[in-house]
Amino acid sequence: MKGDYKLLTDVQLANLLDQQDKAAFEEIYRRYWAVLYGFARKMLQDNEQAKDIVQDTFTKLYIQIGVLNFQQINIAPYLYTLVRNAVITYINRNKLKINYISSFQEYVNAGEYVTDNQVLENEMQRQIDQEIASLPPKMREVFELSRKANLSRKEIAETTQLSEETVKKQIYNALKILRTRLKSYFF
């Protein structure tokens, strides 16, 4: 009997599918598996995934026996459409995975560890503040007026009752001391 199914047209096989004839399904499977696999393989360039998609396509077809009216469907275009849609879905899911992995990899490669950076920045600021606090009192006052209050040398001289030259020398000496003390910390 199976030999007789090879002689049937797709329309005749569709009629038999509507009668829930499993042998008709088997003939459609034998007739279209290789061509659908080639179609999927050409689009995917992946043998195993192409096999999976074709197998899933025939599983969907089998599930539709007794549900779908196959007399109104051309079997070949229907199967090609199922395979094409499955391939498109697979590619879109794969792109999403690739984009997610790529995005995550970029994040890791960038080395942006906000918490670590914040901790380092806080530690650095604490060390700088500690070194400024250890400067001689008048030098510290001049330096803080220069760097924290953003006053000019002339304004600092007027505020502290020092000459502009003394203010300039105090700022220079404060920077020299700070560079020396913080050099090992930064480098």
Rank of each mutant, 00 (worst) to 15 (best):
Gly3His: 10
Tyr5Lys: 06
Leu7Lys: 13
Thr9Leu: 02
Asp10Tyr: 13
Val11Phe: 15
Leu16Phe: 08
Leu17Glu: 00
Asp18Ser: 10
Gln19Met: 08
Gln20His: 11
Asp21Trp: 01
Asp21Thr: 04
Lys22His: 11
Ala23Cys: 01
Ala24Trp: 04
Ile28Trp: 02
Ile28Pro: 01
Tyr32Cys: 04
Tyr32His: 10
Arg41Val: 06
Met43Gln: 15
Leu44Pro: 05
Leu44Arg: 14
Asn47Trp: 11
Ala50Thr: 11
Lys51Pro: 04
Asp52Trp: 01
Ile53Thr: 05
Gln55Pro: 03
Gln55Ser: 14
Thr57Arg: 02
Thr59Val: 08
Leu61Arg: 08
Leu61Met: 15
Gln64Met: 12
Leu68Cys: 07
Leu68His: 02
Asn69Lys: 14
Ile75Gln: 09
Ala76Asn: 03
Tyr78Leu: 04
Leu79Pro: 01
Leu79Arg: 06
Leu82Tyr: 04
Val83Asn: 02
Arg84Glu: 12
Arg84Phe: 09
Ala86Leu: 09
Thr89Phe: 05
Arg93Tyr: 06
Leu96Tyr: 09
Ile101His: 01
Ser103Cys: 08
Val108Glu: 03
Val108Asp: 01
Asn109Phe: 15
Gly111Glu: 15
Val114Arg: 03
Val119Gly: 03
Val119Trp: 14
Asn122Met: 13
Asn122Asp: 05
Asn122Ser: 08
Glu123Cys: 02
Ala133Cys: 03
Ser134Ile: 11
Leu135Trp: 06
Pro137Tyr: 05
Glu141His: 06
Leu145Lys: 13
Ser146Glu: 04
Ser146Leu: 12
Arg147Cys: 07
Ala149Phe: 04
Lys154Leu: 09
Ser163Trp: 07
Glu164His: 06
Thr166Gln: 11
Val167Gln: 00
Lys168Pro: 08
Gln170Arg: 10
Leu175Trp: 01
Lys176Cys: 10
Ile177Thr: 11
Leu182Cys: 12
Ser184Met: 14
Tyr185Asn: 08
Phe187Trp: 05
